[in-house]
Amino acid sequence: MMRSQTAPYWWLVVPALAALGVFYLYPVAQVLWLSVTEPAPGLGNYTTLYESQTVRNVIWRTTWISLVTTVFTVTLGYVVAYALAQVGRRTLVIMLFAVLMTLWLSVLIRAFSWVVLLQTNGLVNQALIAIGLIDRPLPLLRNELGVIIGMVHFMLPLAILPMYANMSGLDRRVMQAADVLGARSWQAFWWVWFPMSRPGIIVATLLVFVFSLGFFVTPAILGGGRVMMLSEYISFQFQETLRWGQATMLASTLLLGVLAVLAVATRFIDMKRLFGARG
């Protein structure tokens, strides 16, 4: 009986599924397929991964920058999420507005703003010279530092929001209990609050790391071609050589890397909840 009632609802699902299949999944499958068939069938393209020093450097740099970005983003994001969970309503609205603005504001515009701030005659250098901390401009752009600053800035809302969602659901009376039982505030934080907030930390870490691995725009703009991460390298290589085999091999490697990270992460968290499938 249930079946007969719900069966027609598949007609609502089919159009989206069909469209996604033809216009998204099929193209992505093509990328994977080309990586093992172009120019010749086999894993020939993948030998580049250990033969080419450049490619190894790019992959190493991508992983390293992503790790550093993740550590900074999650640490800084945790502080903001913690504050959001503690403050009164008015402060909450102001802080949350700032976080959401950053989330929604164009990634290009944000990268552009960092160029304005970090360039040789940029505002950060001018300010540092004006207060006498340095006498010549620091190189803040077209290097890893600039890329990491821009990436942390981009990722912060992505880390803050899941951690705040987790913390706002915690029972605050536990902290009061710790207080009453004589714990100092840092003890209560470290032994009571921090362990409860761990699920949010895991989700934030995962999101930031996965997005960092495949990040294109900010590293490309702030790295100025000198700090090539995998995404930019793929695009650069492809536009130079138009070799589908190499480009799709690198793209497949990136995709499989991301999927591997997610696969490991499913051991710790419920994926469906992470991506909101259960609402």
Binding site: V13, A16, L17, L20, F23, Y24, L25, Y26, P27, V28, Q30, V31, L34, V210, L213, G214, F216, L230, S231, I234, S235, F238, W244, A247, T248, A251, S252, L254, L255, V258, L259, L262, M271, K272, F275, A277, R278
Partner: peptide, 25 residues
């Protein structure tokens, strides 16, 4: 539930991968 999970593919697949995929097809 499986369908909803598949629907999330465009969030998971890195931008450069999907760009290359769209271009090809």
């Amino acid at each position: 539930d499986m369908v909803r999970l598949i629907m999330l593919a465009p969030i998971i697949v890195p931008q450069i991968v999907q760009a290359l995929a769209f271009y090809r097809v």
